[in-house]
Design a protein around this nucleic acid. Sequence first.
DNA 1: CGAACTGTATTACTTGACCGATACACCACG
DNA 2: CGTGGTGTATCGGTCAAGTAATACAGTTCG
Lengths: 126, 126
Amino acid sequence: MILVVDPHSGIPIYRQIVEQIRFHVASGLLRPGEEVPSTRTLSARLGVNPMTISKALTLLEEDGVLERRPGRPHVVPDRSGESARADRLGQLEQALRPVATKARQLGVHPETAVDLFRRLLDEDER
Amino acid sequence: MILVVDPHSGIPIYRQIVEQIRFHVASGLLRPGEEVPSTRTLSARLGVNPMTISKALTLLEEDGVLERRPGRPHVVPDRSGESARADRLGQLEQALRPVATKARQLGVHPETAVDLFRRLLDEDER
DNA sequence: CGAACTGTATTACTTGACCGATACACCACG
DNA sequence: CGTGGTGTATCGGTCAAGTAATACAGTTCG
């Protein structure tokens, strides 16, 4: 697994790590059952304190992206496909609902809002 | 004009004020030509330091949402309807972008996400 | 001019985020 | 049980953001 960290980017190191691992899991580069390299390994490789790594992994664990096992490395949990899908939609809905409310309060036409969202989704894909 | 501030929300006070005034202007509740209450009035009403109010109004002025007049209260500038519309869309886009990113990270199919958003917009209408 | 408004530049304090050093707890294995 | 692996709780230092106290500058109106 490849991780890159820039201490001068203004973005906190632990957050850079969170984002990259999250992406690796989402993209399938890191599959269920696979272990994340140990905190000290990553620590040495990135030139960062082990605690900083641990902090990132803890956040990912709270988010359900990783599973923590005392005395052993973190691992990508093995979640069933169907419940995982429902979970994702639930998370998305939770994030999307307040935005829908805001769109209405701003008086933006629903079709306009939908078009904007579609454009952002495509853009994001890159 | 109604402003509400929560000092314990984790969001900086000056930013809460910026968001609310920006929203009031975009939604038409605060119209071109209208004056914003004086910094000391808002200061007393919200229980915060005048400088905090001033900081918020300065940011809004840099953003073109308000106009500054030395020795006199800030005022909503007289702008063409077209730019006001762009402003609303800009605000919506800003709220929508992180959600689009999240949708992608969750691996939700773009069309599924769009459908969900459309449903929420309709629901909201009631 | 002077009084009573307006906004804000300057300065200083407080708070919290971030990061790292240290030390401790758990696990595998000879 | 000891050695070498794992993760992390605790504490402390550093630094920037947020907030506030003070004092000063422009405007209006008498």
